[in-house]
Amino acid sequence: MKVLLCISHVPDTTSKIRFTDNDTAFDKTDIQYIIGPHEELALTRLLEVKEAIGGMTITVVNVGLKETEPTIRKALAVGADDAIRVEADPTDALFVAKQIAEVYKQGNYDLVVTGKETIDYNGAQVGEMIAELLDLPSVTSTSHFDIKDGKAQLEREIDGGKEVIEVDFPFVATSGKGFALEPRIPNMRGIMQARRKPLAVVQAVNQEIKTKTNQFYLPEVKGACTFVDAENVEELVRLLHEEAKVL
């Protein structure tokens, strides 16, 4: 079983977000980068399944410049077997999906896994685009993932509930809530091994750019919290009605 796991290289959740060049570009100064939290959970679950069934290789792929390699190495330290970096400054989701679809075609994979969404653009679209480019079935917002007797056993989130779904290999799964609970942390041995694991760099293929980001904005600075005395809850009701107009 060969699994291709797509990982994003994104600012740490606690980062202060700033822009530069008249708010047309993300300001990378002092930003700590991490594996996207959804992909980190997806990797954790894939490793659990691998340990249970054996005979699985997990390849992580990232579309990015050399600066993403520490993030890729971290995924190798957590336990992925090898890695591929597609040399490109990613422009939009379709561009990224196209690169990963190309990697898939070269590698004879049985399964592609992506996180639910990246935490920078929050697009939640790359997984489905990969599936469409490759004409594969997909399972979105996968809340339970297992492989038993060579068959995928999945549960997916639907609006208002969940559903057990059977799907034929090869397919694309995007992770959802419940895929794994706590991300696995690399240990010292993993970090040492990661240095020697293969990280291939491949060239990007062409893809017409259909969307581009022109301008970023920061939200308006929120006014200070209006405190209401715990003994005077009627005042909160009045404020919500008269001032905030939400009651």
Binding site: I17, D120, Y121, T211, K212, T213, N214, F216, P219
Partner: peptide
């Protein structure tokens, strides 16, 4: 929205 609600982005669609 972008950056998990910490910013907004204007996207141009040229298709």
């Amino acid at each position: 929205k972008a950056y998990s609600g910490k910013a907004f982005a204007d996207f141009e669609l040229n298709s």
